[in-house]
Design a binder for these strands. Structure first.
Length: 926
RNA sequence: GCCCCCGUAGCCCAAUCAGGCAGAGGCAGGCCCCUUAAAAGGGUCAGAGUGUCGGUUCGAGUCCGAUCGGGGGCACCA
């Protein structure tokens, strides 16, 4: 596999995989022994005691779940990217915080525990050890003192503490912020205790709710809306999900809906992620309008005159009341669903709707529904319009009822067509419009006092009118719902909550934290037939009876309580880990305010008046766009409102790295064959002589196309692997893995090494003579370019520039001048830190280069003495001319026109126009 | 159906932000050197007019408008 050092074939001191391995091990040990990547805190245990540089940088990876499968080459892409960034800035003199912890609660460990009987903690900790070994080998410059793990009681104690903060607060809509619950309780001081308690409890930001939740029998747990796919199945496992009423913890994230949308504008995040969050929060402005007892939500109150019927969701509470005993004598046969009475029709329709899965309801876009037998009054003109029940209206959005305006809404148009309902246009369609419903802009028609107004004006006018009449009011509607926060799992954070004999919840005092997980015999919740919608959750903690029943003194003497047997969702631990990285072993607080302000506080002088603070660079996959990143922002805002942190956003700049993808090959039977043994011939692919088909996508065990970083480190060394990964393309682009290409990165390092070290003797080989002019110019051009590339995360082009410089040295054939060797090595260091450290040390430096210096380009080498201008005639290059760099436009023009070939082209005629682009070219229009 | 991103040598990618000679770098390929031989060694050469059509401009890979292809997000949200 790797070449032997010292064999006859290969020079003893060539940069081979074996040599790289020795160098890498040596420097990894050095860094660890010397705490090279320790980033000092202003105060506390991690303070160096002599102050901190004002210039800091906090770089963070989305921390991994330590899976048992280990890493493939795709996983470290982001980790290496952040490491290069961190190393570059560290060398530039900034105080750089970069570390990595583990998001270690979660289903796989629990499921593995169920299969093997091994405690999830054991599995998880073993996996973490493996993970740490794998990432250590990559040479990531982490501050190891700051490693945290969400399963650590010292960590989840604070997760529970934050839960209590949220529980013990309410949202003051007048002030637009969360406030301590005690301030609310004070307002109700005059009320009887239990009424006060009920009022207060109903306004907490973390509250118990008996509302419908997503129950997933196949997983044996409930799920948040964000964890349910648009097909109505669990994101994990793809099991059916049913709506059920269960008493569960909820987080009042909807209180923050406006701020969560508005503050996106203050974040340096990819537009794509922002738009996904905006979409998910789904804010729309509209009005509520009352048709007698039925309240509807509409975004188009301006079309009220065109409302020809109402529709209620099948689950709407008024449906039963509205369903009359008999059909009107002239009822349209299409409206009855074939039933004898409206009550029967409605009951049958509701039953059918309840049996349909979310998926059926969405896929089947044919409009169905039945008439309730009732009519409602349109407040704007007193018209009686029929009320229908139809499943194209969803109970979960708005009021669960709509006014149907077929003229301006295609869904309503479709329904009206099926049921023979009238259609009135209230916006005049544009000339030549041939569609059905018209949803564009135009003047109002058939709309009484709104006629002639445009949509915006009409909305405003009708909203004012409705308000005056008491028939409605303007309102804002969100798609976002509160966050379901309980899970029926074992391997998660227990709730710091107990219930008394009346079932009333009591939060535990801070002094009783952490509430640690009990030992249990069976780690699994009871799971059910995935289709069994009527099954009952049975969390594993409920079986730890000794733990569940507990005697406590919560202020009114020792009493027996029952603990909450749910656990928090997997997202809890990741909602605040950047705060703990800052102060990982603070025993008194979740983070010291001084440390928090230094690493995460807003810096308006640097980032502008609107700076929300947060991690300076947060890198991870786009798959967390809505879940983790929304929850995390919510927690941060609560903590901010309560005065615990100084920034109101957790992540100032977000960057999504691309994925490393891979080809997979299938034989004629459709079975995957090992990708590494497939050969390509004439655009076709063969495995053991048989033609196979190729597909492109993920890397995975079952696809037989996994390549591991360990394997790459063995064959080429970590530096080569790092360089190759970073050279494959820009950080945000997904790219296909190609093992055969890795050798290119190794050849470069070999050549660079050879330019500085004698391959036969191992002696350093640099000259103390000054470099020639050309070399200096290239060197400084490279320095300037590399600076820019590193700070823009364009590592592929940074690498290419280094190769270019090194190729220049190789070609020159001379012994490399030290004055070029040193900056070259320093510039290489962020990408290939081990070999750079080794060469730096061999160049005679006693100190690690981790803290710089990073070379600085000298301006005088960046400006050339002469410039070569290409000369175009009518856009085609016809000649070139060399002029002094300081020649002005007239001189360049004169030189261009004097050029022999150009004079020839012009044939003695005067050019119509001559364009001189300074420093670039000359274009002559003949 | 709506929205977003991407199409440059055989392959991965530069140049697109700010219009100015299409090539920085790597893989693969040809040739040469080293070598008994070989390559994960060294050197060198060649290779596309930028998916397509149209527009703006003295000049378009770059800007604008269509269109095709690929990827992603949202989707009966009133």
């Amino acid at each position: 596999m790797s070449s032997e050092v010292g064999t006859e074939e290969v020079p003893a001191h060539r940069y081979t995989a074996a040599l790289a391995d020795a160098v890498e091990k040596r420097w990894q040990e050095y860094w660890e022994d010397n705490g090279t990547f320790y980033a000092p805190n202003p105060v506390g245990k991690l303070s160096a005691g002599d102050g901190v540089p004002a210039d800091k940088l906090f770089v963070q990876d989305m921390f991994p779940y330590p899976s048992g499968a280990g890493l493939h080459v795709g996983h470290p892409l982001g980790f290496i990217g952040t490491d290069v960034f961190a190393r570059y800035h560290r060398m530039a003199g900034r105080n750089v915080l970069h570390t990595m912890g583990f998001d270690a609660f979660g289903l796989p460990a629990e499921q593995y525990a169920v299969q093997t009987g091994q405690h999830p903690r054991k599995t998880t900790e073993d996996n973490i050890a493996t993970y740490l070994r794998q990432i250590r080998r990559l040479g990531l410059g982490h501050d190891e003192r700051r490693r945290i793990s969400t399963i650590d009681p010292d960590y989840y104690r604070w997760t529970q503490w934050i839960f209590l903060q949220i529980y013990n607060s309410w949202y003051d809509t007048e002030q637009g912020r969360a406030r301590p619950i005690a301030e609310l309780a004070a307002k109700y001081a005059d009320l009887p205790a239990d009424e006060r308690r009920r009022l207060v409890d109903s306004q907490r930001l973390a509250y118990l709710s008996e509302a419908p939740v997503n129950w997933c029998p196949g997983l044996g747990t409930v799920l948040s809306n964000e964890e349910v796919t648009s097909e109505g199945r669990s994101e994990r496992g793809n099991f059916p999900v049913f709506r059920r009423n269960l008493r569960q913890w909820m987080m009042r994230i909807t209180a923050y809906a406006d701020r969560l949308v508005d503050d996106l504008d203050r974040l340096d995040w990819p537009e794509k992620v922002k738009s996904m969050q905006r979409n998910w929060i789904g804010r729309s402005y509209g009005a509520r309008v009352r048709f007698d007892a039925i309240e509807v939500f509409t975004t188009r109150p301006d079309t009220l005159f065109g409302a020809t019927y109402l529709v209620l969701a099948p689950e709407h509470p008024l449906v039963d009341e509205l369903a009359t005993a008999e059909w009107p004598s002239d009822v349209d046969s299409r409206w009855t669903g074939g039933a004898a009475t409206p009550a029967q029709a409605v009951a049958a329709y509701r039953k059918a709707a309840s049996r349909k899965s979310e998926l059926d309801r969405q896929e089947n876009k044919e409009k169905t529904g039945v008439f309730t037998g009732s009519y409602a009054t349109n407040p704007v003109n007193g018209t009686k319009i029929p009320v229908f029940v139809a499943d194209y209206v969803l109970m979960g959005y708005g009021t669960g009822a709509i006014m149907a305006v077929p003229g301006q809404d295609q869904r309503d148009w479709d329904f009206a067509e099926v049921f023979g309902l009238p259609i009135i246009r209230t916006v005049r369609p544009t000339e030549g419009f041939e569609g059905k419903a018209f949803t564009g802009e135009g003047p109002a028609v058939n709309s009484g006092f709104l006629d002639g107004m445009d949509v915006v004006e009409a909305k405003k006018a009708i909203t004012e009118w409705l308000t005056e009449q008491g028939a409605g009011e303007g309102t804002v509607q969100f798609k976002l719902r509160d966050w379901l926060f309980s899970r029926q799992r074992y391997w998660g954070e227990p709730f710091p909550v107990v219930y008394d004999e009346d079932g009333v919840a009591h939060a535990l005092p801070e002094s009783m934290l952490p509430v640690e997980l009990p030992e249990v015999d069976d780690y699994s919740p009871r799971t059910f037939d995935p289709e069994d919608a009527d099954s009952e959750p049975s969390p594993p903690l409920s079986r730890a009876t000794d733990w569940v029943e507990v005697e406590l003194d919560l202020g009114d003497g020792p009493k027996t309580y029952r603990r909450d047997v749910n656990t928090m969702p997997n997202w809890a631990g990741s909602c605040w880990y950047q705060l703990r990285y800052v102060d990982p072993d603070n025993a008194d607080r979740f983070v010291d305010p001084v440390n928090e302000r230094y690493w995460l506080g807003p810096r308006t002088e640097q980032h502008g008046a609107n700076d929300p603070g947060g991690v300076d660079l947060y890198i991870g996959g786009v798959e967390h766009a809505v879940l983790h990143l929304l929850y995390s922002r919510f927690w941060q805002k609560v903590l901010f409102d309560l005065g615990h942190v100084t920034g109101d956003e957790p992540y100032r700049k977000l960057f999504n790295q691309g994925y490393v993808q891979a080809y997979a090959y299938k034989d004629a039977r459709g079975v995957y064959v090992p990708a590494e043994r497939v050969e390509e011939r004439d655009g076709k692919f063969f495995f053991e002589g048989e033609e196979v088909s190729r597909e492109y996508g993920k890397m995975g065990k079952s696809l037989k196309n996994v390549v591991t970083p360990d394997e790459m480190c063995e064959r080429y060394g970590a530096d080569t692997f790092r360089l190759y990964e970073m050279s494959m393309g820009p950080m945000d682009v997904s790219r296909p893995w190609a093992t055969k290409d890795v050798v290119g990165a190794q050849r470069f390092l070999q050549r660079l090494w050879r330019n500085l070290v004698d391959e036969e003797t191992g002696e350093l080989r640099v000259s103390e003579d000054p470099a020639d002019e050309d070399t200096l110019r290239l060197l400084h051009k490279t320095i300037a370019g590399v600076h820019e590339d590193y700070s823009e995360m364009r590592y592929n082009t940074a690498g290419a520039k280094l190769i270019e410089l090194n190729n220049h040295l190789t070609k020159s054939g001379a012994v490399t001048p030290r004055s070029v060797a040193e900056p070259l090595v320093l510039m290489l260091a962020p990408l290939c830190p081990h070999v750079a450290e080794e060469l730096w040390s061999r160049l005679g430096h006693g100190e690690s280069l981790a803290h710089g210096p990073f070379p600085v380009a000298e301006q005088r080498y960046l400006v050339a003495a002469t410039v070569e201008y290409p000369i175009q005639v009518n856009g085609k290059v016809r000649a070139r001319v060399v002029v002094p760099a300081d020649a002005d436009q007239e001189q360049v023009k004169a030189a261009a026109l004097a050029e022999e070939k150009i004079a020839e082209q012009l044939g003695g005629k005067e050019p119509r126009k001559v364009i001189v682009v300074p420093g670039r070219l000359v274009n002559i229009v003949a």
